[in-house]
Design a protein around this nucleic acid. Sequence first.
DNA 1: GGATCGCAGGTCGACGTCAA
DNA 2: TTGACGTCGACCTGCGATCC
Length: 337
Amino acid sequence: MSGLSKKNKIVKIRSLNETKKYGMAATNLKELLKKGCKLFQIPPFGSRICLYEDGTELTEDYFQCLPDNAELVLLAMDESWTGFVFDMSLLLNTGRNSGLIIDAAKGLLSEEQSPKRRKLLGDLLLHIEDNSETENRSDDEDWFQGIDVRFKTKSAYMRYNCESRIRGYMKEVDSYAQTIQKPKLKDQYRKIVECFVMQLKSDKYNGCYFNRTEKEHERLCTKEGWFTCQGAFDQDECKSLHSINPYGNRESGILFSTWNLDHRIEKKRTVLPALVEALHNHKNSNINLDYFYNLLFTRENLKLVHIVCHKKGAHDLLCDQKKIYQKGKRKVFLVCC
DNA sequence: GGATCGCAGGTCGACGTCAA
DNA sequence: TTGACGTCGACCTGCGATCC
């Protein structure tokens, strides 16, 4: 069969540096290379063509087996193509040029009907629309929508958010006194609660954990505001690599509220009963309140976890019997007890 | 075995009080 | 007036016990 009798193959072709595709017809690979080099102004020497999807370089035989409208990339001598992974890496490195991608994604989203694709585009937009570099209310008013006007900066609000959570724990520790029947024991417990309150005030309710402007060893996030899930209470790390930047945009801020500070050794099931038990057996002056304070209110026993990694069943972790009682002199802050 | 309930783990917003 | 702090109630989810 002569070359003239071969059927034209219809393909879509683009160059490495252009996203615009062109329809092209050729009977063989050599002809396609020639036409492509002319169109994209690429020197023919060393040029080649590969599949868009995975970078497979075309041979003449492979070209003849291509389906119509196959998507191809024309490469100059020193260029390489790794498939659409290349496009994804471009996407991940959007940086300051993210505006174009945001506009494009919004355009696609407005016309998209498939729920799955809408979800993907929505998630993409959520993570690209990043104003995390702004800190003041005037620079990102959308982020502060619905947030009390007294908060002038994102960090101030995030600090307050963390303080509120810790206050909630304190409130629960306080109300646990109602479960103690013996008046004397209840009295001793209340004194300990007062000590915890004093220490929490001194520590500013550990609001530093969510505040990106705090020192590195005190905060749970990067200086940009990225938080990483620390994994379920019984895991060393998060297998799903969950991460979030509530400073980035309003939706991320709202989603962050679903992240939990999870007590590894559980507050109500384990720590508080252990504290009352210790009070029952010893004078409160002998109890290691530093240990209990750390278990209840500090990152020593708190893990920041994505809601998926928050296991609500019994943790079955117990207090360390060796740490429950005081060995040496108590720290100054707990001298009130 | 499925439905229901109580309890435990959390979160939030609204509101009141108080001091600077 | 403002910001810090405390309280309250509402809401969610998961687990285990109990009942039918």
